[in-house]
């Protein structure tokens, strides 16, 4: 028996919004530590890694490890039927070929259940090596979303250059060029609003704007985002989900001209 109940059901709605444009299907691996999902987009350029810890759920039971392959468009359709304040419960029997989503309104007056067929997915699971990153940048997630949106008007690629002075985002295209520089916040009153840079070595890497824009669909999950970069390795864009886990996106760089 698998059962995971979340009073803050809107978290699951937001998680689906954050992955459904990048992935069409994925496997939710459940064990007694929680729910994990790792999947690459179709072009094998980016990867989503989601972790929801068991202790972040209001009720969590997983008697046997279970892997549930799901069509994410279908899951997103079902979760759209949940109210923002609903409690969401996912449950499945051992060896089941369906999963059931139960939505309960705050006053318990409306209870809905949606049963969905599971899929057998044979997806590639990549091993991600432990990496010490040369630069980590923490910044407001809404600011990062704004920068990605603004710069993608100028070109398909964005250069992210991190030095000890700050971080510069740049794009160049037919209409011209754009540069956005963010300095490290001098004094941190509200950590959520701060730009904080930890740098061992400066790093400059180029990434496809399209994927960065997909990642920013996770903005509503966290007020802050963390970018981790080292020369010639994939970028990590991490949104922490309060008290329950995180969603990390990895993006392979482009080779610079």
């Amino acid at each position: 028996m698998f059962e995971a109940r979340l009073l803050r059901g809107s978290i699951l709605k937001k998680v689906l919004e954050a992955i459904k444009d990048l992935l069409t299907q994925a496997t939710f691996d459940c064990d007694d530590s929680g729910i994990q999902l790792q999947a690459m987009d179709n072009s094998h350029v980016s990867l989503v890694s989601l972790q929801l810890r068991a202790d972040g759920f209001d009720k969590y039971r997983c008697d046997r490890n279970i892997s549930m392959g799901m069509n994410l468009n279908s899951v997103a359709k079902i979760l759209k039927c949940a109210g923002d304040k609903d409690t969401v419960t996912m449950k499945a029997q051992d060896n089941a070929d369906t999963v059931t989503f139960v939505f309960e309104s705050p006053n318990q007056e409306k209870v809905s259940d949606y049963e969905m067929k599971l899929m057998n997915l044979d997806l590639e699971h990549l091993g991600i090596p432990e990496t010490e990153y040369s630069c980590t940048i923490r910044m407001p997630s809404a600011e990062f979303a704004r920068i990605c949106r603004d710069l993608s008007q100028f070109g398909d690629s964005m250069v992210i250059a991190c030095t000890k002075e700050g971080v510069k985002f740049s794009a160049t295209g037919e209409i011209g060029s754009a540069n956005i520089k963010l300095a490290q916040t001098a004094s941190v009153d509200k950590e959520e609003e701060a730009v904080i840079i930890e740098m061992d070595e400066p790093v400059t890497l180029t990434f496809a704007c399209q994927y960065l824009n997909y990642f920013t669909k996770a903005t509503s999950l966290s007020p802050q985002v963390q970018l981790s970069m080292s020369a010639d390795v994939p970028l990590v864009v991490e949104y922490r989900i309060q008290d329950i886990g995180h969603i990390r996106y990895y993006l392979a760089p482009k080779i610079e001209d």
Binding site: V45, S46, L126, G127, I128, P129, Y250, A252, K254, D257
Partner: peptide, 14 residues
């Protein structure tokens, strides 16, 4: 393809 690299260049295949 415009210099885009793939994750399999960096991550370990099973």
């Amino acid at each position: 393809n415009d210099g885009q690299r793939f994750l399999s260049d960096f991550f370990i295949q099973p």
